[in-house]
Simulated scan of single mutants.
Amino acid sequence: MRQGDLVTRRSYGGDIVFKIHEIRQQVAVLRGVEMRLLADAPLQDLEAAPQFDPFQYTIPDHPKWMEAMRRTQATQASAAAPGGPWPAQAPAAPSAAYFELPGKVLHLDGDPNYLRKCMTLYGELRVPAEGYYVAEANMADALYRLLPQVQPDIVVVTGHDGILKQRSPGDISQLSSYKNSHNFVKAVRAARQYEKSRDALTIIAGACQSHFEALLQAGANFASSPGRVLIHALDPLCVAAKVAFTPIRETVNIVDVIGLTHSGLEGLGGIESRGSYRRGVPRIPYLTQK
């Protein structure tokens, strides 16, 4: 077994495909290929999986939420068309037309393969986004620099996480029982120092088995994982895209959006939050965003 190999764990019945991130004294540090899980296992517990280039690997789209997002966008476009229902208090003139400003996303990801796929899907969904591959331990420092530069409406801080094997029995209340939750908490706090209002800046944080309560207390609007379960690589993007296309005058339907994710309410939760989608007049042929 070498660094970069794709493997499964015999002791878990080969349920998840991992990439070997590094090897430390006959113990492999593993990162999930589809799940945002960070794990470790003895080399003798590993079994080779079919080998492919993770950077070329296409994480399967989640048709349920992709289709739902496209329906949302179609509804928004219909409402913005000449004679559409917005603004309600003043019927649109026959020649009136509107332009769209979905919320802008700043996405920090601890996995370059996940980041690449997420950025492709943001583009397909017409969500303005900037993405950066940043190790989880460096995310707080990166946000101090990037937030004033990018000025996003939505921040995603995600990567890999997991509950440590070596911890006090049954104790999952302490941040020290998690591999990266403390780094995500630091990142959320850094973002909240930049913008205190949860309406002005929506924060989506966490990965597999992350400390949900600590992330919310630090200032996240949405976080993983209430049930300490695995979440899919695209689940944070699903929530971010929904916030980006929910009108600013409305709140995001938490149950509906999380119901679209792979992991559901066991994997992601949150608090009532405003959308970031705006319309403007008149329609302009080109709109340059910062």
Rank of each mutant, 00 (worst) to 15 (best):
P285A: 15
P85K: 12
H107F: 12
P63W: 09
E195D: 10
Y133N: 06
M69Q: 12
I271R: 14
F52H: 15
A39V: 03
V134S: 03
Q56L: 03
V281T: 11
K64M: 15
V255N: 10
G206T: 06
A190W: 04
S225I: 11
T261N: 03
A220C: 04
A68S: 14
S181A: 06
H21W: 11
P152I: 08
I254S: 10
G32P: 01
Q25P: 04
A81I: 09
M119S: 05
P282A: 12
N113V: 09
F212T: 04
V17H: 05
G13D: 00
Y133S: 06
V156K: 01
G227P: 00
Q25G: 13
S177L: 12
L201R: 02
K165M: 08
L175N: 00
A93V: 02
S78T: 11
T75K: 14
E213N: 15
Q289G: 04
Q56M: 02
R274S: 13
K290D: 08
N253Q: 13
S263A: 15
S181V: 02
L115E: 04
E195P: 09
I231W: 00
L230W: 10
A129F: 03
W86A: 13
H21V: 00
A244V: 11
H107R: 05
Q56R: 05
T75G: 13
K64R: 13
P63I: 13
A233T: 11
V239D: 11
T75H: 14
P94S: 10
A28P: 05
A244H: 08
L121W: 00
P42G: 10
G275F: 06
A80H: 08
C118S: 12
A240G: 02
P128V: 14
G32E: 08
D45C: 07
G83L: 10
Q76I: 15
V229E: 00
H107E: 01
Q193L: 11
P152C: 09
A218D: 06
Q73C: 15
H182S: 12
A200E: 13
R228F: 00
K165R: 15
E213F: 15
A137F: 06
V229M: 04
A129T: 06
D199A: 14
M66E: 02
D141F: 06
A77H: 14
F52S: 14
V281A: 13
I16A: 04
Q174P: 01
P102G: 07
A214W: 01
